[in-house]
Design a protein around this nucleic acid. Structure first.
Length: 901
RNA sequence: GGGCGAAUAGCUCAGUUGGUUCAGAGCGCCUGCCUUACACGCAGGAAGUCGGGGGUUCGAAUCCCUCUUCGCCCACCA
């Protein structure tokens, strides 16, 4: 038996993970130091909504960020992973409003102050939920720097930016048609009104022309006809040329409205005549402006029909107060009765919906605050074009450019109560100004009776300052000087426009001087994929196809969750997980953790006796092989992580640990180490223990960013740890060139192949596992046959042989392997083997090999190939041909030995 | 209407600049194994005309064209 140790044979993540979360926090391992000499590396976390409960989307993005930040930290950078939460105006207000609704109240029953206080109470109560959950999955954030977008200091930054933009003339009051959510009762930005493809109806309505005939218009929203102020046709449309200038009677309303000509009308759509509703359609507003039409507002903020101000009698009393969709039915019915409904046809079109509550958004004329975006977009465009900002994968750059080039002004006012109140004030004299501090009197006329704009700012007007408002801007704090600009921004592409581009704009705007690379908030944007289910639908609560990360942590461990996230996220590709089969989805990570655990159990049992150094002369072939593989692994993992190919890096570690270290090195080294005789020390045993320690230590370091908990737990148990030292801040391994040994790799590969051949033979010939056969390994042409004789014990053990001899000449029935340098290994099993069934199989194999050889011969006979292909390719093909010929000989020998014809 | 992504083993996916790790991994499946770290394991194995078609090339999963099927983003067509 190996020496007793206290580790159970199965890894139990729960207790270990809880313990290390606490230890790391207690050790303040993730707190970035302002005075540290090292170069900083900064990632700001996209702040989750303060009401959020952790879902796989957060999980994926934060795990990716955490891998990068942990890697940077181990590589000696002063790493800052800055967390926080977003007040999420509409989303949070909606949550609290729903709570109120359950009590039968609305926010208006409470009044503004009481409502806002209620939201605060809710936020204070639940606001740290997601923060705690992020700790559970191992995010190595600097929690002391956690920020909330409504913190007092943060609010100061928001006001500062607003006032600066105001003073620069970039904020203006716009009277225009905006997207209105009648459920949230607020305006939305273009980005917040999301298109959804729907099949609706296209209604053809006859408008009677004064003086006879009718003009038919097509509309998808017939209820808005009450707000029509004209009917427009294209000026060149021959069908309607005679009608322009006349008037039509607006059905139901009875008002006379003009027929006008406007070039924006598409004669090919519908009837070529379009009703013009300037107050409820952005296009129509433009047309109305050109033709000096009125803008009667016939839909209320609640989305109900309502008589416009001025009372032109547009909305009949019996329709007033009717919801817009009910009104649509009623009006269509009434048009039908009046014989004015020409036809209705199904119509596929994109309808805008509120991104928070999915309600169909209504275009509605109103007064809102806008930011002029063109001047802000220019430096952001330049940043990408000058290479100061890089998007990964780079296919996003075209999307980025296109959006910034065609950018439209940003409606930043929201008719909500929860958020940053717009710092615009008005006095009785009508003076309007923006102020950093709440003013006592009007700076223009000294009037003391002043009112503040009732609206709040778009949530994103605070989030776009995240990379520097969190560091204390506009104050010139040490944090700001040290940690701005940051390095990498990691997020899913769905908030590229909401957030990423705007952060870049805010960065360059708020840091107006210096070279561009000192102004932009980060130099790399890594846009990873979206978490989807097996039907490739985005995981969402509403679809019910989500996976609760905490359930996964409970069942499989946080490391398993992280493993699945990382191993499945190819560069920028979506991550497909199966919510119906958590076992299949997360078991690989758990199993790998368990494998690591058990390698640890084996290694730790040996290590009390591990020497600090070893004489390189004592290293066996296997030692030199695994050490060489380790150097390769270190190099590959490092570059993979640098290039955001996290899956590749993780899998490379996996293969090293499992396929190389555990499957081969540990097995090869067992006979040398003997059974639990730690006192026994030979140079070879010392070497093995030293190599084990070195490889395992390095593997734990490489894996730590991905699976921090188990690696920390195991690493702590390695001997020689100074108290308080943590893997989380231990140095990243560097490849050691002196251990790179391609010759040893090649030789050990031969040993492996010899063993695999013997194993395959045993399985093929159904040799009982306990049968200790004798085998002969025939080596020919090898540069050093002692490579095999030196590994006699390894081969015997791993191939379950009773005895093993080496032979340079004889060729018997067995397995054959050749190598690139022309050397060969032939393995002959000696013992009773039932070969009766083998003839057919061997003949088929022989036939296939013949066919392949014919094809290869043709290729080699092709003068084009020989002339044009690189020399080493031709040589490789020739080698292959020789190998195949040898294989054919072997097959022939086998067939002959079996007595097959 | 424009742009982008995906299509590779039964399932979920890798495959970076065409050529020695190019036909791979995990899961599942088949055959044996509790072999002194691990059955969340070990050994062996079956399995794919790399979506269809055309082209470039000595050589294509990889580059070009085209078609099909999914998915996403953007767009003022009522």
């Amino acid at each position: 038996m190996v020496p007793s140790f206290d580790l159970p044979p199965q890894y139990e993540p729960g207790e270990v993970e809880r313990r290390w979360s606490q230890q790391w926090e207690r050790a303040r391992s993730f707190e970035a130091r302002v005075n540290a000499p090292a170069q900083p590396y900064v990632i700001v976390m996209p702040p989750p909504n303060v009401t959020a409960v952790l879902h796989m989307g957060h999980g994926l993005t934060c795990v990716i960020q955490d891998v990068l930040i942990r890697c940077a930290r181990m590589r000696g950078r002063e790493a800052l992973y800055l967390p926080g939460t977003d007040h999420a105006g509409i989303a949070t207000q909606n949550v609290v409003e729903r709570q109120l609704a359950e009590e039968g109240k609305t926010r208006f029953d409470l009044g503004r102050d009481a409502f806002v206080e209620r939201v605060w109470a809710f936020v204070r109560q639940t606001g740290s939920t997601i923060i705690e959950q992020l700790k559970i999955i191992g995010c190595s954030c600097d929690w002391t720097r956690a920020r909330f977008t409504l913190d007092a200091e943060y609010s100061r930054a928001v006001r500062e930016v607003f006032v600066r933009l105001w003073e620069a003339g970039l904020i203006y009051r716009g009277h225009r048609v905006i997207h209105w959510c009648s459920r949230c009762r607020t305006a939305l930005s273009d980005e917040e009104a999301e298109f959804e493809e729907e099949t609706g109806q296209l209604y053809y309505i006859r408008y009677p022309v004064d003086g006879g005939s009718t003009l038919t218009v097509a509309t998808t929203r017939p209820e808005t006809m009450l707000g029509d102020t004209a009917v427009a046709v294209h000026p060149d449309d021959a069908r309607y040329r005679g009608l322009v200038g006349k008037t039509v009677r607006l059905p139901i309303v009875g008002l006379a409205i003009p027929i006008i000509a406007d070039r924006t009308v598409d004669p090919a759509f519908g009837t070529g005549a379009v009703k013009v509703t300037p107050a409820h359609d952005a296009n129509d507003f433009e047309i109305g402006a050109r033709h000096d039409l009125g803008t009667p507002l016939i839909l209320t903020e609640e989305g109900r029909l309502g008589e416009p101000a001025g009372g032109a009698g547009r909305v009949p009393p019996d329709l007033r107060g009717l919801d817009r969709f009910a009104a649509r039915e009623r009006i269509v019915a009434r048009l039908g009765e009046a014989g004015l409904l020409a036809k209705v046809e199904p119509h596929r079109h994109a309808v805008r919906h509120c991104y928070r509550c999915d309600t169909v958004v209504e275009p509605r004329l109103s007064d809102q605050w806008f930011v002029a975006m063109k001047p802000l977009a220019e430096p952001a465009l330049a940043a990408e074009q000058d290479g100061v900002i890089r998007l990964v994968p780079d296919r996003w750059t075209s999307t980025y450019r296109e959006w910034l080039t065609n950018i439209r002004d940003w409606n930043i006012s929201r008719q909500l109560w929860w958020g940053h109140r717009i710092p615009v004030y008005t006095c009785g004299q009508g003076h309007t100004w923006a102020a950093r501090e709440t003013p006592r009197d009007c700076p223009n006329c000294g009037a003391t009776e002043i009112t503040q704009d009732p609206d709040v700012l778009d949530t994103w007007f605070s989030s776009w300052l995240w990379p520097f408002a969190t560091l204390g801007w506009p104050s010139r704090t040490d944090d700001l000087a040290r940690f701005y600009p940051g390095d990498t921004l990691v997020t899913a592409p769905d908030i590229l426009f909401f957030w990423v581009t705007r952060m870049i704009m805010a960065g360059t705007y708020c840091f107006p001087t210096g070279p561009l690379q000192d102004r932009v908030p980060f130099h790399t944007v890594y846009l990873h994929g979206v978490v989807r289910d097996t039907a490739h639908r985005k995981m969402s609560k509403s679809l019910g196809n989500g996976i609760d990360p905490l359930v996964v942590v409970e069942r499989f461990g946080a490391d398993a969750l992280r493993w699945t996230c990382v191993a499945n996220t190819a560069l920028g590709q979506d991550v497909i997980l199966d919510p119906a089969d958590l076992e299949t989805t997360f078991a690989p990570g758990r199993n790998f953790a368990n494998k690591l655990w058990n390698i640890g159990r084996f290694v730790l049992a040996q290590l009390p006796a591990a020497p600090d150094a070893v004489d390189s002369g004592a290293l066996t072939l296997a030692d030199r092989w695994i050490l060489s593989r380790l150097q390769t692994t270190i190099r590959e993992v490092t570059t993979s992580f640098e290039q955001f190919r996290l899956d590749e890096g993780a899998k490379r570690c996996y293969d090293f640990v499992w396929k190389e270290l555990a499957d081969w090195y540990v097995e090869a080294v067992k006979p040398r180490l003997g059974q639990g005789e730690l006192e026994r020390r030979s140079p070879e045993q010392d070497a093995a223990r030293w190599v084990l320690a070195r490889c395992f230590d390095a593997a734990l370091r490489l894996l730590h960013p991905v699976v921090p908990f188990i690696t920390e737990e195991l690493w702590q148990r390695l001997p020689g740890r100074t108290p308080g030292a943590l893997l989380a801040v231990a140095p990243w391994p560097e490849p050691d060139l002196s251990f790179e040994d391609p010759v040893a790799e090649g030789r050990f590969d031969r040993v492996r192949q010899a063993i695999e051949k013997i194993r395959a033979l045993r399985a093929d010939y159904r040799v009982p596992p306990n049968a200790r056969l004798a085998a002969t390994v025939v080596t020919r042409g090898s540069d050093d046959p002692s490579a095999f004789t030196g590994e006699r014990e390894t081969i015997q053990r791993l191939a379950h042989l009773g005895s093993l001899t080496f032979d340079g000449e004889s060729r018997k029935l067995g397995a054959h392997a050749t190598f690139g340098d022309g050397s060969e290994v032939f393995v002959a099993l000696e013992g009773a083997i039932d070969l009766g069934q083998e003839c057919g199989r061997l003949s088929t194999e022989r036939a296939r090999l013949d066919a392949q050889l014919t094809g290869l011969a043709a290729k080699l006979a092709n003068p084009n190939f020989v002339a044009r292909a690189p020399a080493e390719v031709v040589a490789r093909e020739r080698t292959k041909e020789r190998e195949w010929q040898v294989q054919r000989d072997v097959l022939d020998a086998k067939l002959k030995a079996l007595g097959c014809s």
